[in-house]
Structure formats: structure tokens, C-alpha cells
């Protein structure tokens, strides 16, 4: 939304964000380091399986954040949205299907209903964000700051701050089961990521998202329905939160407001690390997946080393600062080479 002049910065000129090769290299180096530090412990199927169960939650939430950041926006309400969706799903589930029993056909129907209701909720919340951002013209950070507070508040009112738990076993399979050895959450995440990637790179909507991220006015002058594109961005973000919540509640076997609150800012970091330009217009799904893998490897590796999980969080922040300094260094060198 800023004026054209402000967009002429260095990072945009050079494509912005991180470089896929740097990320891949970093991932390999990290895995190598952990393999050496943890001989026989790190490079095991069990480690990777554990990672594959943990990554999808943050992954889906990071996708929800990243799609809004591509347009130069942000969605601070992703965690609130996910929890709301989880609460709706959980409330319907616990009221219709008794927990811990095998599920019949009617039960399966209720499970489907509960999940659909949850996803519809997240879609509607995305619609609300989209409306405020696209049609009322509120800056995304403020709009979603408001809806975050509001949605969280409603979730607290609905649950009185309590945990809703006790889901049927079939539901728990979503978070904990596997298909042919592949953890279900990972399957959900990769399928979703692929779908989002295709939407972004192979549809008119996706091209418009990148164009809007770089210059909303010029995109509108080209005849693109900017408002409707933005609206759909926030709706997609909502749905992605919904998917994240389904994975999350089935892994925890419970739903509550305030779950995963610490993920909010981490998703921004993951997006930027994955090459999403905070100013909008640049960033691709593969980069994001690489960034998430880096964060996950650091987290799992340090965990195996017995390091506090909080140090992991500190290290995540450190990695962002490291990568951005690296990018700055490289781009200034590239610039001097180009003009030479």
C-alpha cells in the first residue's frame, strides 16, 4: 500500500528474501553437524518420523502467515483462528461422539460434520479479515491485531478458558496415524503445500497475489480485482489455520484457546527465512518448506542433545538474523559486481 518510490529498495531489485541454495546448504550443514554430534542417534528413521509428526502444525500455520505476507500484509490472527476452529470442532465432537470408542457410520458422519464446521468457521474468520483489509482498507497488521483479540476473546467466552478433550479414536489418527509409513500430518501438510504452491504459481489469482504484493495500484490499473484477490488470500489463510487446527487438536486430543500461542511470531520468522519478502511480492513454497525443515532439524537435534527447548527458540531467532545479514552481504557484493 506504500507509494511506489518506497518500493525501490535493494532487496526488491535482487529478488528479495533468502536464496534457496543458501537454505539447502544450511540444512545439509546442520544435518551433518547433528549426525556428527549424535552418532547413530540423529540419522535414524525414528528421529525423522518424529520430525514428520511435529513439523506440519507449524508448517500449516506458516503457510497461513506466508500467503498474507506475499501481498505485503500479515495475519496476526492465525493462532486465534486455528484455536477457534479447533474449539468448534472439539465441541461438536465431544457432544456427539463419545470418546475412546470405535466409531460407526453415524459417528463417522458426526466427525465429518464437526470438521466441516471447524473449517467453515476458519473460512468465515478469514472472510472477516479479508473484508476488513480489502474493503475497509485497514492496514493488515491492525486489522488482524483486532480480530486476533476479538476471536481469542470469543473463544475464551465459549470455553470459559477450559480444555475440551476426549475425541474418538478415529480423530486421533489424523494427528498420530500413518499412511504406508508416512505420518498423516505430514501427508496433509505436503498435499496442502503442493496445492498452495500450484495456486500461487499456476493460477491468475496467484500471479495477482505477487503483483499486488509489489504494487497494488499498478495491479488495479491492469484490471485485476485487487479487493477480491486480497479477500481470497485471507480466506485461504483462514482455511490453512483450520487445517492446522485439525492436525493440532487430534495430536493433543484436546482443544483450548491459547494453544500454540508462541507459534504466532515464529511463523513470521519461518516465512522470512523461507524467502518471503516482508514487503510483499516475493517468496515461494519450496523455500518455506526448506526453512521449516531447518527450524525442525535444529529443534529435534538440540532436543536429542538434551538442550533446553528455549535455547532452540533463541537459536531460531539467531538464524534469521544470520541469514538476513548473509543476504545483505551477498546482495551488496552482487550490486557492486553488476555495476562494474
Amino acid at each position: 500500500m506504500t507509494d511506489g518510490g518506497a518500493r525501490f529498495d535493494l532487496r526488491n531489485l535482487l529478488g528479495g528474501g533468502s536464496d534457496i541454495r543458501t537454505l539447502a546448504m544450511l540444512l545439509v550443514v546442520l544435518m551433518g553437524a547433528f549426525a556428527v554430534l549424535l552418532p547413530g542417534e540423529f540419522l535414524r528413521a525414528a528421529t525423522f518420523q518424529a520430525m514428520a509428526f511435529q513439523l506440519p502444525e507449524l508448517g500449516l500455520l506458516a503457510l497461513a502467515m506466508a500467503v498474507t505476507m506475499l501481498t505485503g500484509g500479515i495475519n496476526l490472527s492465525i493462532i486465534a483462528t486455528a484455536n477457534m476452529c479447533g474449539i468448534v470442532t472439539a465441541a461438536i465432537l465431544t457432544r456427539t461422539v463419545p470418546g475412546d470408542v470405535a466409531v460407526g457410520a453415524a459417528g463417522a458422519g458426526y466427525i465429518l460434520l464437526a470438521m466441516t464446521a471447524g473449517l467453515v468457521t476458519s473460512l468465515l474468520l478469514g472472510l472477516l479479515n479479508g473484508f476488513i483489509v480489502a474493503y475497509l482498507g485497514v492496514s493488515p497488521i491492525l486489522a488482524t491485531l483486532g480480530t486476533m483479540t476479538l476471536i481469542d476473546g470469543i473463544a475464551v467466552v465459549l470455553t470459559k478458558g477450559r480444555v475440551i478433550s476426549g475425541f474418538p479414536r478415529a480423530v486421533l489418527a489424523i494427528g498420530n496415524g500413518d499412511v504406508l509409513g508416512f505420518p498423516v500430518p505430514m501427508v496433509i501438510f505436503l498435499t496442502t503445500a503442493l496445492a498452495v504452491g500450484v495456486l500461487l504459481n499456476r493460477t491468475p489469482w496467484g500471479v495477482s497475489v505477487y503483483m499486488i504484493g509489489s504494487n497494488q495500484t499498478a495491479t488495479e490499473f491492469s484490471g485485476v480485482r485487487v479487493r477480491s484477490v486480497l479477500m481470497r488470500v485471507y480466506m485461504l489463510s483462514g482455511i490453512l489455520c483450520g487445517l492446522a487446527s485439525l492436525v493440532m487438536i487430534s495430536r493433543f486430543n484436546s482443544a483450548k484457546s491459547g494453544y500454540a500461542a508462541s507459534y504466532l511470531l515464529v511463523t513470521v520468522l519461518a516465512s522470512v527465512l523461507g524467502g518471503v519478502d516482508p514487503g510483499g511480492g516475493f517468496g515461494r513454497v519450496p523455500g518455506l518448506i526448506l526453512a521449516l525443515s531447518i527450524l525442525q532439524v535444529v529443534s529435534s537435534g538440540l532436543n536429542l542433545l538434551g538442550v533446553s527447548s528455549h535455547l532452540t527458540v533463541a537459536l531460531w531467532g539467531g538464524i534469521i538474523i544470520f541469514i538476513t545479514s548473509l543476504n545483505l552481504l551477498r546482495s551488496s557484493r552482487r550490486l557492486s559486481k553488476r555495476s562494474a
Binding site: D3, G4, G5, R7, F8, N12, L13, G16, P204, V207, S208, Y210, M211, S214, N215, T217, A218, T219, F221, S222, G223, V224, G281, F282
Partner: peptide, 21 residues
Amino acid sequence: IGQGLVMPQPVTDNVVVTVMK
């Protein structure tokens, strides 16, 4: 700069943006 083109984006996308459908 402000209205005519999306400067940081590729030539191709700037040309086809009007006819993507």
C-alpha cells in the same frame, strides 16, 4: 512507476497480467 507497471516483477507477468484469464 506507480500505476503503469509492477516494477519489481518479471516482464512476462507485467505483459500478461491483463489477459491472464
